[in-house]
Design a protein around this nucleic acid. Structure first.
Lengths: 318, 318
DNA sequence: TGCGCTTACGTTACGGGTAACTTAAAGCTT
DNA sequence: AAGCTTTAAGTTACCCGTAACGTAAGCGCA
């Protein structure tokens, strides 16, 4: 018991005793068993469960990095779950991770299976839903309004004088942020008198090569597309390369717009038209909200992290 | 007790009792407390601690993805630690994560602080050191021989007829795999009659933009470099873009060689000279070795995952 | 009918740390 | 020096699931 007090530094022991305890600790290489602490105290652990769809997408890797760094600096550990964009995987992971009594959960996305939602409600721990800003979150939410970001991009492309527009993305069976962006995008395009003549939703990962061959497919369909909006920058970059390979001039022959503003954009000669989202900051904000709630500080339940249109030079000027 | 038996399905109960228990479970939304299970049974948990330097580097993001997917499919959870390439961060993380009684640890790199090494030895759990193949690992090791991979690249560039070679990378104060590659590289170049006239070790992350401005710095020093070897593909890609921006022809005016074979290489028109390493497979192999050891199967302690030189078209032919 | 065996379920103790309480010793006051 | 307070250290019980053991009922068989 005295040793426990010394190790927690909560007072109630003499210096002599402290030294004796610490000596023994060093000698034995003693490491406290945190399981027992949590177990005993009926407190929550220092774990925070973090679910991320996949890490092949640099964007989510950066979000995770922001989360883990911030959590780590407050002595909390990330328990990772890659849900592969499926609610079933997410549900399974939630069940498992909850049985480990995490202090809280950070989940990507606002759509959960009914069972998952019920477990989350019953868990009685702080939950931050990230990525897709949710005005009625389970608990807290931080992200951006994807519909609006898609809408803004659509409006911008219309302002550049395009009217026949294509879209290349990937489809995950469930509703997700990319779909919401596309909805906003279509609304703006149609509202501006244009049309999204061709939407391509590949069954693949949203990375470079699918962007490349998706562009090939889209252009081969001969639908008179003047400009292509991509699910993300990696796909847009693949499209840009495809056009280069075929000798098509960007933006003279075709416009290319991405989404997400990946780091690679900092070095390519032609600035990619895109939508900047502060990924790292998003992760940090999520972790801060979690930490704040765990320290019983008042936390604003919804935080809009914002986005910024990057006009770039891969679409023509109006 | 009977409920415990039912939930574990270990037998010794009637069907009627089982139904009664399950009914209560559903009604109460009961989730077992795994902490207590581990605690009670003196068994290890289903956690596996995974330390990764950073996720800004796509390579490590992929390794982590490989690990987490494989661990998850065997009902194990990843407890993440981003060590930011420092032994001190790693040591702190190891101390914390060990107090959670993980089933095992997967660590990136073979260099650990003396205290960390001692804790690892005392922990008595399986440990897989990845990335840098280690012929005398703490326990198990999977990765590649970085010295050899650097050597092979050096030899290849010499065979292409280069003699004045530059290197652009980042420096992390401690010994690491990139340094080992550079050592092997220098040995091959010098053994082949060439010289590494300029080595640039930036204090930055090993990503696109540092590759871009590092190239600028290196070329500005006027050391007559004919070919540049980069720490990784992201940096090489930045260099490639820098050269494009300045109107330099690759490989006519300068040769560019990367390392790691990033996914982005699949779409750029000019195939980047690089070294392919199966990142996802590396992560999966690490997880498999961990699972194998945890199931008391015999596991080969050292596994060489191999690399493959990609000649590419960004260096001239001999 | 009585013996042993099986099945179904209950009871006890334990793991490691800590909250809450108790006890012992030391310090202080008048 | 008696009586009080403060400080230091020890004791007990508990967290929740499970190993190990205990027990009662049911069954088969001679």
């Amino acid at each position: 018991m005295t040793a426990s007090r010394v190790l927690r530094g909560e007072g109630g022991y003499s210096e002599k005793t402290r030294d004796k305890v610490m000596e023994k600790v060093d000698q034995l290489g003693y490491l406290p068993n945190r399981l027992a602490t949590v177990f005993a105290g009926d407190q929550s652990s220092t774990f925070v469960g973090v679910s991320i769809p996949d890490l092949g997408n640099e964007v989510f890797a950066q979000v995770l990095e922001g989360i883990d760094r911030k959590l780590g600096s407050f002595g909390r550990q990330t328990v990772l779950g890659l849900t592969q964009h499926t609610q079933q995987e997410e549900e399974n992971w939630i069940r498992t991770v909850l049985s480990w009594q995490p202090a809280g959960l950070i989940l990507t996305g606002r759509y959960h299976s009914p069972r998952a939602a019920e477990m989350l409600r019953n868990a009685g721990i702080p939950i931050v839903e990230i990525w897709d800003l949710n005005s009625s979150p389970l608990d807290m939410s931080v992200g951006i309004n994807h519909f609006d970001s898609g809408f803004d991009m659509g409006r911008y492309l219309m302002s550049c004088g395009y009217s026949n527009i294509g879209y290349v993305g990937t489809s995950h069976d469930t509703a997700n942020a990319a779909t919401t962006r596309l909805d906003g995008f279509c609304k703006a395009v149609e509202g501006g008198g244009g049309q999204v003549v061709k939407q391509l939703c590949l069954h693949d990962t949203a990375t470079y090569y699918p962007g490349f061959y998706g562009t090939e497919q889209l252009l081969a369909s001969g639908s008179g597309v003047e400009c292509i909006f991509y699910q993300n920058d990696a796909m847009a970059f693949g499209g840009l390369q495809y056009c280069g390979t075929k000798g098509m001039q960007v933006p003279q022959d075709i416009g290319i717009a991405g989404w997400g503003d990946l780091p690679i954009a900092s070095v390519i000669a032609r600035r990619l038209t895109s939508m900047h989202v502060p990924h790292l900051k998003l992760g940090q904000a999520a972790a801060e909200m979690m930490i704040g709630r765990l320290s019983d500080e008042p936390v604003e339940p919804c935080r809009d992290i914002g986005f910024r249109l990057i006009p770039g030079t891969t679409v023509r000027n109006a």
